[in-house]
Design a protein around this nucleic acid. Structure first.
Length: 411
DNA sequence: CCTCCACCGGAACGTGAGGAGT
DNA sequence: ACTCCTCACGTTCCGGTGGAGG
């Protein structure tokens, strides 16, 4: 890619043969036909749901597990098989999948459910209980078992648990149809905020998905790579390395698949005939940077200012800094960009939020006579962080701002 | 063993935006 | 148009605390 005209560039890129056979297989949306190392969970789930085939109401189920442990894949997979089996047995059974991150209000959820049964519900405008009624009518027209998979159910709870309450007692109001729910969550503690009644009804059965270890991730990757890549284009170290990286990230298979895909794309971009170890390393870096950019960009302004204070302190040689120091710099910055200065109490909370987002690492330590404070370390690449922060129009005049650093912590 | 620093972090409260009901 | 809510975001107030130095 030198001074070629665009035409030649396209030509080059076209002639450059793809390393992929079917890239879609590596995307998170793809549901594979077999799921290695999840047979225990599949069996468990199937055992509970089998009563649907006998026309009974299966217990409600809660599925827990960290990201990329195959929760969604297993739930969908079993759902599909169940529907197929119910067809051949002629015992009607419908499995619906709802992602609560996209459909995140009570109204939209009910409207969506009703719509899947052919009801015409406007996007907005109706009272919620009317939509609920419509949905009940729609499903109660015949003997059938409805199973609703609520993915990322914790997102739904944040906006109130009315929906779950309504859905969990819907069976008492139905005469012919039966409904049960499968909640999928990656937050182990989210039921704490739930009304106890819902909690017990929803969590009749619970299935835990443990993280994969490196060995298991390798198996998954091999299976997918078979379909995704042309033969012989993967260096033998590629899969183990992807697996190792992903295993460090609490056994996230999705991450491993991303790595494998991005590594391939990078190799392709360099017109290499083979995906090598270095491409995996580049991919690891690229994914991390992309994540940081994404997260930092969408931060509220006050959090950006707080984060920039930490960045500045690192410039001046402070490897780990304290809340007091950050607040000191933060105030100077606020004056400089004409923003309201928040209290230290609030900034302390902002720091904790940044910690939870994985941008910082804040640990409370006691320095004896010199008090007790959070020790804060930046846990993302400083260069790209600064760049993204300065892209914000409210911060860009800070590009060459020099803070006054006092010798000792004070004020 | 006691002190005392420099914060932590819980609790209660204020405010303004936005939605639902009437 | 109106009240009544809830929610996110902040503030004020304040009791609590691990451990270096006396």
């Amino acid at each position: 890619m030198k001074d070629n005209s665009l035409d030649e560039l396209f030509q080059d890129l076209l002639e450059n043969e793809s390393l992929f056979k079917n890239k879609e297989v590596l995307r998170p949306s793809y549901t594979p036909k077999s799921l290695p190392h999840r047979s225990a969970q599949i069996n468990n789930l199937a055992t509970i749901l089998v009563s649907a085939l006998r026309g009974d109401t299966p217990s409600n189920i809660l599925i827990y597990g960290k990201t990329g442990t195959g929760k969604t894949a297993v739930a969908r997979h079993v759902g599909i098989e169940l529907e197929r089996k119910s067809d051949s047995l002629n015992s009607p059974c419908v499995v619906l999948y709802i992602n609560c991150e996209v459909i995140d209000t009570q109204y939209r959820l009910l409207a969506n459910l009703a719509k899947q049964f052919g009801q015409d519900v406007p996007m907005t405008g109706w009272p919620t209980d009317q939509v609920f009624l419509k949905f009940k009518e729609a499903i109660d027209t015949k003997d059938q078992v409805i199973i609703v998979i609520l993915d990322e159910i914790d997102k739904l709870i944040k906006k109130g648990d009315d929906v779950l309450y309504n859905l969990s007692r819907i069976n008492t109001e139905l005469s012919r149809a039966k409904l049960s729910m499968i909640g999928v969550s990656n937050d182990l503690k989210f039921t704490e905020f739930l009304d106890p009644r819902i909690k017990s009804s929803l969590g009749e059965e619970e299935i835990i998905f443990p993280p994969y270890d490196a060995e298991q991730i390798s198996d998954i990757l091999r299976q997918r790579a078979e379909i995704a890549y042309k033969s012989e284009v993967l260096d033998e170290m590629v899969i183990p390395l992807c697996a190792a990286f992903a295993a460090q990230e609490h056994g996230d298979a999705r991450r491993a698949l991303d790595l494998l895909r991005v590594a391939g794309e990078l190799a392709e971009r360099e017109s290499e005939a083979q995906v090598k170890e270095k491409h995996v390393r580049y991919a690891q870096e690229k994914i991390e940077v992309d994540r940081v950019v994404e997260v930092v960009q969408t931060l509220p302004t006050q959090s950006k200012l707080t984060l920039y204070s930490v960045v500045l302190l690192r410039d001046y040689g402070h490897r780990n800094v304290t809340t007091g120091e950050v607040y000191n710099i933060y105030r100077q910055i606020c004056n400089n960009v004409d923003m309201d200065i928040l209290t230290q109490r609030r900034v302390s909370d902002l720091i904790s939020e940044l910690d939870m987002l994985g941008i910082l690492n804040a640990v409370v330590v006691s320095k004896g006579r010199y008090g007790r404070t959070k020790e804060i370390v930046l846990s993302v690449p400083i260069g790209s962080t600064r760049r993204v922060l300065l892209e914000d129009y409210r911060l860009n005049m800070l590009a060459d701002f020099k803070p006054v650093i006092t010798a000792q912590m004070q004020l």
